[in-house]
């Protein structure tokens, strides 16, 4: 297994390089002189020239890429102009909040989605199946940012169950119950679409598996039905559900952008939107590369989970 993990880690290197090339190429799309674009049209010529030198813009495209890559590998993602601090520091400060939000959301959508899919398949065409199918349709159709706003309106303003926004109260203690109180609504709003997608795929994966011969064998042995569904069938269905979880993790991670805006969550997503509006290009570049890299790493975890689940995968 260790060998397999190492192999997967090695195979991530070209992907990470590819990501850096893509991000770099996109940033090269910036129309006109990037330094002017970054500093704004009122920048003094000296500043523009200095930035051009800092960015290595007086050199060719390929050379510039390698300078940028080399700096990044040394932990230097550049400096944010709007915030006047190193990009990496800012991203790392913000990343914790995003990780809490996206992580809990991912947990929520995995558990809810799989459970809903299994129940739906086990009760195919029954009342529970119809109710779940309808809820799923609603869930995948509602924009998460609109759902978040409606939740604020109902559960925070009307019912006063949860705080309206933010991660911490402005005054007061910062402890786990307080965090959970603030986290509940954004995490749920972020998980709804992914829950729907996972539930759908889990349902069809379960239906596929429940028709297999080994399910009949389990029943012929006298294994009780609950165990047939939740052990035999779900275990086999997980082989096709886990890759979907990996894809949905990407949606949750990037969908956090909307939720962070709606709930004033101090994460990387909100930072990125602010940075784009302020044309803080280096901050955007660094943030995007960092999150994409995290996602690649997460997908390695998914592959490892898959290998642990399915002994037929050569490790």
């Amino acid at each position: 297994m260790t060998g397999y993990i190492l192999k997967r880690l090695l195979s991530a290197i070209p992907v990470l390089l590819g990501i850096s090339v893509i991000v770099f190429a996109i940033m090269a799309l910036i129309p006109g002189d990037p330094a002017t674009a970054i500093l704004g049209s009122y920048a003094t010529p000296e500043n523009v020239e200095k930035l051009n030198r800092d960015l290595g813009l007086d050199q060719g495209f390929v050379a510039r890429y390698f300078i940028w890559l080399g700096n990044m590998l040394q932990g230097d993602f550049g400096r944010s102009f709007a915030l006047n601090r190193p990009v990496l520091d800012e991203v790392l400060d913000r990343f914790g909040a995003t990780l809490i939000l996206a992580g809990s959301s991912f947990l929520l959508c995995s558990l809810l989605g799989i459970a809903a899919g299994v129940v739906s398949a086990a009760r195919q065409y029954g009342l529970a199946d119809k109710a779940i199918t309808f809820a799923v349709l609603l869930g995948i159709s509602i924009p998460s940012f609109f759902l978040g706003m409606m939740m604020i309106l109902i559960f925070a303003v009307q019912l006063r169950w949860f705080p309206v926004s933010g991660m911490w109260p402005i005054y007061g203690d910062r402890n786990l119950p307080v965090l959970l109180d603030h986290l509940a609504m954004p995490a749920f709003a972020l998980s709804v679409v992914a829950t729907g997608v996972i539930a759908r795929l889990a349902r069809s994966a379960m239906l596929e598996v429940l028709r297999q011969d080994f399910i009949r064998t389990a029943r012929a042995k006298g294994v009780n039905e609950r165990r047939v569904i939740w052990r035999h069938a779900l275990r086999a269905a997980m082989v096709s559900i886990i890759p979907i979880l990996g894809i949905q993790a990407g949606f949750v991670l990037s969908g956090a952008v909307y939720i962070e805006m709606v709930f004033q969550w101090p994460g990387v997503g909100r930072m990125l939107v602010d940075a784009i509006l302020k044309r803080d290009i280096l901050l955007v570049q660094g943030g995007v590369v960092f999150i994409a890299a995290c996602y690649v790493m997460f997908n390695i975890l998914v592959d490892v989970a898959q290998a642990l689940l399915d002994p037929r995968i050569k490790t």
Partner: peptide, 25 residues
């Protein structure tokens, strides 16, 4: 297809954000 796979390694909305960041809102 290698290139396509690379693009698909991105969390989706993030890529759109990067493009908008470069081109401007």
């Amino acid at each position: 297809m290698r290139g396509v796979d690379m693009l698909m390694a991105f969390p989706y909305i993030l890529l759109a954000l990067a493009i908008v960041a470069a081109l401007g809102p």
